[in-house]
Design a protein around this nucleic acid. Structure first.
Lengths: 119, 119
DNA sequence: CAGAATCCAGGATGATACTG
DNA sequence: CAGTATCATCCTGGATTCTG
């Protein structure tokens, strides 16, 4: 029997990984992404972590893995309908992050967003 | 220079700790809570982790620590205005968690919410 | 290109005892 | 009651190498 002390713990079990929210945000922003495109947008993640986090998200039913049987391999990831139900919450988190950065900048901190991965 | 690859990373820096979202949700639900009340609602957190996470949230400006100079000591925590700006996003996460639990239950998983800490 | 399989260090987290 | 200090531990996450 799995127990939670407060419902939000159940959400954290799904999005609690170090990179999961970031992955989900990228998928929210771009719809469908190949493995290499995700990696390009997350320069600091390792191959292993990327795969691992994607697998966990997949087995939690929030994203879907689409494998094309071809050479070289092509694999795409996209949110499931269920995963899409997370989008509103995550988008609010994103905009809060933006505000948080602006606040930091206005307070004289040295912060910046690279986000040069837009093609 | 601190850099982010995507703005949501800035949000994760603030709420990324293992217990931070849970702490914040309790404060959203109850307004102001004493240390011991927080602990009662988080049976699995240790004294050390609780203090540590609270200190980090405080130094990020999302919650405020109110110390009463008396014996025995009394310390209360509440969200700052800035922390309150996080509430909408976190509340969506909470309700998503509730839905996630319901989904799990309806799929025959053994899950339950204890939340017996309501007095 | 996508990812599996190792090995491994480090920080994050826990348990316990102590203080004012 | 609230918090600190210390020590032990786990396991996340990173570097690397290998495969189809």
């Amino acid at each position: 029997m799995k127990t939670f002390n407060i419902p939000v713990e159940a959400a954290l079990e799904v999005i609690g990984g170090k990179w999961k929210v970031v992955i989900l945000c990228h998928l929210i922003d771009h719809g469908t992404l190949r493995t290499s495109e995700l990696k390009k947008r997350m320069p600091n993640i390792t191959q292993k972590m990327l795969t691992q986090q994607l697998r966990e998200l997949e087995s939690d039913g929030v994203l879907e893995r689409i494998v094309y049987n071809q050479v070289p391999p092509k694999v795409e990831y996209k949110l499931t309908d269920y995963g899409t139900s997370l989008a509103p919450a995550l988008q609010m988190l994103c905009s809060w992050g933006e505000q948080h950065i602006e606040k930091a900048v206005s307070e004289g901190e040295d912060v910046m967003v690279l986000s040069g991965a837009e093609e």
